[in-house]
């Protein structure tokens, strides 16, 4: 199959590559760029493990083709921590609240939450948070730590929006 050139920015760095039009974005990230922090859980857009931000908006990288990301700005879990490795507040809250066990779904949750707190900085009620997170599946934790982490971090974001 004929390959197409693509150029995109990921976590502030420029990447170029050649991909078959059918190549999914997640395979491009994982296989071609070795950005293996984004995971593949179902390949049909339900579990959310592969969530990344495309121009700041959460998308399923298993349902997005790499060529669709051409010319766009991506952010993956590798881009969350600060330049010196300091954890993003969401990451720190996940650690504090035992919001991860096997860690396979974690990247997807973190990216969905990043999008959530940016698009709805005033989110507060547990019910609302739970509804907003229902697009990501976790099989280990039973979600309580994840919800607790988001409640805490949302309160911080309301105080000092970044």
């Amino acid at each position: 199959m004929e390959k197409r050139p693509i150029h995109l920015a990921i976590n502030g760095r420029q990447y170029s590559g050649e991909v078959e039009p059918r190549r999914t974005l997640v395979d491009f990230l994982r296989e071609d760029l070795d950005l293996t922090g984004t995971h593949v859980g179902c390949e049909h857009g339900v579990c959310g493990a592969c969530t990344v931000l495309l121009d700041g908006v959460a998308v399923r990288s298993c349902l997005t083709l790499a060529v669709q990301a051409n010319g766009h700005d991506l952010m993956t879990v590798e881009g969350l921590a600060g330049p010196n490795g300091e954890l993003h507040p969401i990451q720190a809250a996940f650690h504090k609240h035992h919001a991860l066990q096997c860690g396979f779904c974690t990247a997807g949750f973190l990216m969905s939450i990043f999008d959530l707190l940016k698009s709805r900085p005033d989110i507060k009620e547990e019910d609302e948070i739970r509804k907003a997170l229902a697009g990501n599946l976790c099989r280990c934790t039973g979600y309580s730590g994840i919800v607790a982490a988001v409640r805490e971090i949302a309160a911080q974001f309301r105080k000092e929006p970044s």
Partner: peptide, 21 residues
């Protein structure tokens, strides 16, 4: 005791079988 496993998993540096090349 907070988990010692978390840091790589939170930063996308975990090592699962499919990550190996």
């Amino acid at each position: 005791v907070e988990r010692r496993e978390d840091l790589p998993l939170l930063t996308g540096c975990g090592t699962y079988t499919d990550d190996l090349k």
